[in-house]
Deep mutational scan, measured.
Amino acid sequence: QGDIVVALYPYDGIHPDDLSFKKGEKMKVLEEHGEWWKAKSLLTKKEGFIPSNYVAKLN
């Protein structure tokens, strides 16, 4: 089961498979690959890669 993270900063995706998000948006982490994680937005239901240093895990 994936962790839920919250965006600390907004992110505008650079690549087509990036997931753009707004500050405060919550996402479910699907896979962790070093600095880039695959996640699904709980708001938009879209999936893509996010920079892990832009988010914090919720406990």
Rank of each mutant, 00 (worst) to 15 (best):
Q1V: 15
Q1L: 14
D3W: 15
I4R: 03
V5L: 05
V5P: 00
V6L: 06
V6G: 02
A7E: 02
A7M: 02
A7N: 00
A7Q: 00
L8H: 04
L8A: 03
L8P: 00
Y9I: 08
Y9D: 04
Y9A: 08
P10F: 07
Y11E: 01
Y11N: 03
D12P: 10
D12K: 14
D12F: 13
G13W: 03
G13L: 03
G13M: 06
G13N: 04
I14V: 13
I14P: 07
I14C: 14
H15K: 11
H15Q: 09
P16K: 11
D17W: 15
D17H: 12
D18S: 13
L19N: 01
L19A: 02
L19E: 01
S20A: 08
S20L: 04
S20I: 06
F21H: 00
F21A: 01
F21P: 00
E25S: 03
E25L: 01
K26F: 15
K26W: 15
K26I: 15
K26N: 07
K26E: 07
K26G: 04
K26R: 13
M27I: 05
K28H: 09
K28C: 13
H33C: 14
H33M: 10
G34F: 04
G34S: 06
E35F: 15
E35G: 10
E35Y: 15
E35P: 12
W37T: 08
W37I: 13
W37L: 15
W37G: 01
K38W: 15
K38S: 05
K40W: 10
S41P: 00
S41C: 05
L42Q: 05
L42F: 08
L43R: 12
L43V: 11
L43N: 07
T44E: 03
T44M: 02
T44D: 04
E47K: 08
E47W: 06
E47Y: 07
G48S: 00
F49M: 14
I50Q: 00
I50F: 06
N53D: 10
N53A: 14
Y54G: 03
V55N: 01
V55D: 00
K57V: 11
K57T: 09
K57E: 06
K57A: 09
N59K: 11
N59C: 15
